[in-house]
Amino acid sequence: MTLSEKDVRDIATYTRIGLTDEEVVTMTRDLNDIIANLEPITQYDLEGVEPTFHPIAGLVNVMREDVPQPGFTQEEALANSESTEDGAFRIPTILGGGDN
């Protein structure tokens, strides 16, 4: 399976990473090189082998008691954002139009 430059552009769009034309060329080469090295995985007879998605068997989800606990203040939650307004994260337009 070989990735084309178009495939790489599609992945870049999906992962929201803008790539220059030169970066698309090197990324295509690097990804194909890495994927070629993943081939051993496709050559195993894995019939009937259960997958392991997590290294510790038998984990169960843990719920805490449903009692209020202190959390971030609004100020703390916004502190690392470069653009806030009226206690909210400020983002540019999503649907197009508008002046910001």
């Binding site: 769009t13 803008g18 983002i91 540019p92 910001n100």
Partner: peptide, 17 residues
């Protein structure tokens, strides 16, 4: 948006990229 490097843009998708 919430934290991390931001290159401002007039459109959100473009800002992400």
């Amino acid at each position: 948006v919430r934290y991390g490097n931001r290159v401002p843009s007039t459109e959100l998708g473009d800002q992400y990229e």
